[in-house]
Structure formats: structure tokens, C-alpha cells
Amino acid sequence: MEEYKTIFFLAADVFLIAAGTLYGWKFLKKRNSLLGLECLIVAISATNLLFSALLISVPGFEGISLTLYGNALFLDAFSRASGFPLIAMAGLMALTHAYHPSRTAEILWFAGSFAAAGILIAVAPENRHILGPFAESTLVHAIEAIKPWFYLVMWSLCSCFLAYFAWRLFQVGERLHGWSILTAMVAAQTIATIYDFFKIPGDDADHTLFYIAALSTWAFLTVALYYAYCALERNLPETASAKSRGSQSYRTARS
């Protein structure tokens, strides 16, 4: 049974790596840096997790495995706190609200999100030593206490926008993609709710069943987002499409 769980875990991880890499690149080809880079960050996080799992039992590689796992946790914090809830949703707003940030704004989006992820990781008990004299401050303990709720609130906001995005798809007759987004939204919200608050019955100490479900859900969400994005894009009014192309060309010229 343990062998089967390991195989399913590795398969789900590879699925997420493939989805994040492929569709991240496809979003970049559509000149949507926000969605493209966030998908690639998810793929990098999953890659670190994969090699961490493969190396943990190899003699002499335990330290490397722990480093890779730490990298995965940092990028996971990035995506849960703002990567998907803010950056990816801002990327979807290219279609829903004709939002096309400047290159400087995009850099600020990512810089601020990486800084926030760094704080969220630093306040964990095992990492507080890097904070020096502030390690046991009231603020650090307060951030650690509210961190699970912060992640849940941020993902819930993401779910609200995904529901709106699905509604926009239904409005233009793309019912299949609308339902795929709603399905992915419900699954991802379930994972976000379980993450810090519940344990799946029968799961092991490494949370293998949870990781199988989470990795598979995020991979499905990535795939569903790309094809739903394409579906809404091809149904935009001609004036909106022209405005979108004009904004992208203007931004490219400025860069």
C-alpha cells in the first residue's frame, strides 16, 4: 500500500511540473507575464518537492533533500499567500478588466510577494533564528498564529474571483470551461481548507494522501485556467480584443 501511495505521489508531482511548465510557457507566449511566471513558479516548487522526496533516503543526500524541501515550502508560501490569489488573478484581469500592468508594476507584484513569503516562512518556529533579537517578539508570534487563517482568507478571495471568471465564461456560452473552472475552484478551496486545519483520515505522517490530492488539484487548476483563458479570449468583443493587443504592443514598445 505504501508503494502505491508513493507512486501516486510521484505521478501527481510530475503532472504538476509538466502542467506548470507547459502552460506557464504558453501564458508567456500570450504576453501574460503574471500568469506565466506564477505557473512556472509552481512548477519549480513541485520540482524541488520531487527531488527532495527522491533524495531523502539516499545516504549522503539528506542535507540536499532538506534544502530542496525548504525551497518548495518557500515557493508554496509564495503561491498560497499571493501568487495565485493576487498575481494569477491579476493576470486573468487582462481579459475581464483589460488590466495590463507596466513592466515595473509586474516587478513590484513579484518583489512584494516574495518579501511576504519570506516573512511567512521566517516566523515558523524552526526558522526564527534568522530573525535574531526579534525571534520571540510578540509580532512574530502573532504572525505565526494568524498565518493559517491568512492563507485560507487569501485563497477564499481567489475562489471568489474564479467564480466570477466562470460566470464570464457562462455569459459567452463557454459552459464546459465554466464548469471546469468551478470544479477546479471547489477542489482547490477544499485543499486550502484542509491544508492547515484537518488531516485526511488514514493519512501517514508525511501527509502523502494530502499531497496526492493537492498536487493533482493544482495541476488540474493550471490546465483548466489556460483553456478557460483561451476560451474567454476568443469570445471577447472585437473592440476589447483590439484594446488588449494595443496595450500589449504599447507595453512591449516601452520595454
Rank of each mutant, 00 (worst) to 15 (best):
Y226E: 00
G24Q: 05
P85F: 00
Y69S: 14
W25L: 15
I121E: 15
A88Q: 05
N48W: 11
A253P: 00
A188N: 05
N235Y: 07
A231I: 01
I200C: 06
Q248I: 14
V223M: 09
T21V: 11
E238I: 13
M93S: 11
T47W: 00
V42N: 12
D76H: 07
P101A: 06
A214E: 06
A166C: 06
W149S: 15
T67N: 05
A188V: 03
R251C: 01
L86N: 07
S241G: 14
A81D: 02
A184Y: 08
F198N: 04
C39L: 08
K243E: 15
A214G: 04
P201M: 04
I119K: 09
A19L: 04
L35G: 03
N32P: 01
Q171F: 00
Y164R: 10
P59F: 07
I121W: 14
T190C: 09
F114A: 04
M93P: 05
A192V: 05
W179G: 00
Y226M: 07
L157F: 10
T190D: 03
Y23V: 02
L215H: 09
W25K: 15
L35D: 01
Y211C: 00
G178E: 02
L66P: 00
A219R: 02
I143Q: 08
F84D: 00
V14S: 08
S180K: 12
H100W: 10
E144A: 15
L232I: 01
L131T: 07
I212Y: 03
E233T: 05
S241H: 12
V14D: 03
H100I: 14
V58Y: 11
T183I: 11
T47S: 15
C160R: 09
A205T: 12
T138Y: 12
H129I: 11
G178P: 06
I41H: 06
A142M: 10
Y151H: 11
G36H: 04
A77C: 10
P237I: 05
Q189G: 13
P125A: 05
G132E: 05
A219L: 06
F165K: 01
A98W: 00
I64V: 15
H207Q: 13
L182W: 01
A188L: 01
Y23S: 01
S247H: 13
L50P: 01
T104W: 15
E126C: 00
I107Q: 13
A46S: 14
T104C: 10
A105Y: 06
E3V: 06
A205S: 15
N48H: 13
G246Q: 08
W149Q: 12
S65H: 10
I130N: 09
G70Y: 11
A53P: 00
F61Q: 11
F15G: 02
A142N: 14
N32Q: 03
A214W: 01
A53M: 12
A192E: 04
H129F: 14
F8R: 10
V58A: 10
T222Y: 05
I146E: 07
A213F: 10
A240G: 00
Y23C: 03
S82D: 03
W149I: 10
F27T: 00
L49E: 07
V153P: 02
Y195G: 00
R31H: 13
N32T: 06
V153N: 06
P201Y: 09
A53N: 15
H177R: 07
E233G: 05
I7Q: 01
G70I: 03
